[in-house]
Design a protein around this nucleic acid. Sequence first.
DNA 1: AGCACGCCGACT
DNA 2: GTCGGCGTGCTC
Length: 720
Amino acid sequence: MQPSGAPAGTGETVYLAVALDVPLPGLFDYSHDRPVAPGVRVRVIFGRRAMVGMVWAVREAPGVAADRVRPIEAVLDDLPPMPADWLRLAEFAAHYYHRPLGEVLLPVLPPSLRRPAAYTGARSAGGPVCRADRRPGASRAARKRKGAAQAVPADAADAAETAAGADAAAPQAADPVRDDAGPALTEAQTRALAGLRELLAAGAGVALLHGVTGSGKTELYLRLAQQVIAAGRQALLLVPEINLTPQLEQSVRARLGDRLAVIHSRLSEGDRLRAWLGASRGQADILLGTRLALFTPLPRLGLIVVDEEHDASYKQQDGLRYSARDLAVWRGHDLGVPVVLGSATPSLETWRHAQEGDYRLLSLPERAQAQPLPEIRLVDTRRARLEQGFTPQLLDALEDRLARGGQSLVFINRRGYAPVLRCPSCAWVSQCRRCTAHMVLHRLGGRHVLQCHHCGDAMPVPRACPDCGDPDIQPMGRGTQRVEEFLAQRFPGARVLRIDADATRLKGSAEALFARAHAGEADILVGTQMVSKGHDFARLGLVGVLNADAMLFSQDFRAPERLFAQLMQVAGRAGRREGGAQVIVQTDYPEQTVYQALLRHDYARFAAHALEERRDLGLPPFSSQALLTAQAVQVRDALDFLAVARARARALPEAAGVRIHDPVPLRIVRVARVERAQLLFESDGRGALHRLLRALLPGLDELARGAVQHWGIEIDPQEI
DNA sequence: AGCACGCCGACT
DNA sequence: GTCGGCGTGCTC
Ligand SMILES: [Zn+2]
Ligand SMILES: [Zn+2]
């Protein structure tokens, strides 16, 4: 660290334009005795507090009155300046998402690099980088985890298969062509790999690897990464949060060696910094991580892979609302590095790019191990007599699987026992006092409680109706817990295992529950979307889907797209190791395209239909959207703010070609005593929309003074 | 966003 | 009398 005022200054005062993580536009000028390179972090006093900022530019004169300018406290020179391409990426993100530079540059760094106290305390010992370098090994906890992971695979082939998750082409015991380079490829894999290698040879471009669950996409990523590493470059492999398991890490390590860095949000600060340093110093050849790994400097980057590119977890939901997939494509393009997007159900944005020829489309139409895809049955629930939500067909199928010793999965995307409690005599329902939403009945231990899924509030279940005293209040509908209870009682001999966010929180780690399922300690699994990702269950022969229609009723135009992806994913759990698997989807609307396309495992048909609809309605990907959001105690104030914003926008010359909708309250207006509303902007071209926002947004802070607590802009919203 | 200052209600 | 409530305003 270079203390300010240290010797060897030039004597000339310069002004450093510093980016700070504050929601204020622009940069802040600080004085210093010599120039400092852009991309270097500095410690400064801002207002009353110490902050870490990043130098963006050097100026000869301050942009504000000289008496307001303060000196740099310290130049944090324990790291070289951030590289130019990294600064370009951050600049693009700040510009595209309409946020100040500092709100991108600093939050994407490992936390210890942006905390001023990490450099000042008595125990700071030269700062976080020195401390990390002094203990180059991983932390004790990390070593323990690694040791445990390595101890597991007695059968390495099997471990690699489960681990690489959805898409490892599993080496079979009898596979004759297997060698150190990995399992033998199918014909389709070989063709796709050739296409990917052409992309690599071309040096840039985007490919969409479209392959059904189990078609072996992961194997192709690994081979491509191997090739890139052999050429002396680094590979960045992004995966959804839920897929980044110790097993995946272990299998990548087994295949690509120890020069692997892993970055995700659940790492300790020390481990995260060490991984980040390893990747940014070029010591790691491969970086495996979740969306936040996208912002890691990689000096020798040669390949970016985004697995399950349609996954919602690539979109950050708090702070800077960026899409790691979109930024990955930008970074690849900027650096002239190939980008591979993989999915069984690509986002329609990506699919359209592939159809238009912007992206190279490579398909893996079949499962790698030649098991047929499961047979799908739609069961019409309109005229069925239901038993706790189950049709006789599904119950019969469950019974049949039980008799044959197979495993089944009942999928219901709703946690808890019942979504609402209701009084039969009056209008009382279990309403949350802080939200416009029902409190959900949960079984906790042996007792029941009411829980709000939106604000986290909890309360005991009343013994009788609080309004009229009727003791006979009833749970309405069902969630995983009630389904679990029903199945246990309906099939007394069966071992029923529930896997959802509550079960994994309560009974220890998710991995332990999944391990029980894998070990065959359950006949019927009951789960939410948590079970539909990343995990294969060897003996799983039947998947039953309850309540799929709930996702269809959403106002959001992307609801069918998400439902289709969800159903394909959960259907893909069945029959991974043996044939004869079956999926039963209960629905009131079997004629809907989503379900008809699902019957044939036909993504292309679904996508063509959905795209046609989007084109007719002028929706993405045929238009660009932005959402202006506002929060207030009273939704009226939020709506008024948005109405004025709309009037201002319409008065601007930049409004030409931009459709500005009406301000509307959110579907769930109040969450934790805050009421929300939004205003949708839409235009056919991206440029017009962004020009309008650039003219409109700077004035809104002033407009929001008063009853509006908060406002924000979301570019390319994925839920509206 | 923090973090101050600032001016009115109930507490030792 | 002051402890603290959060309204308002500023931060290079
Ligand atoms: Zn009542
Ligand atoms: Zn609530």
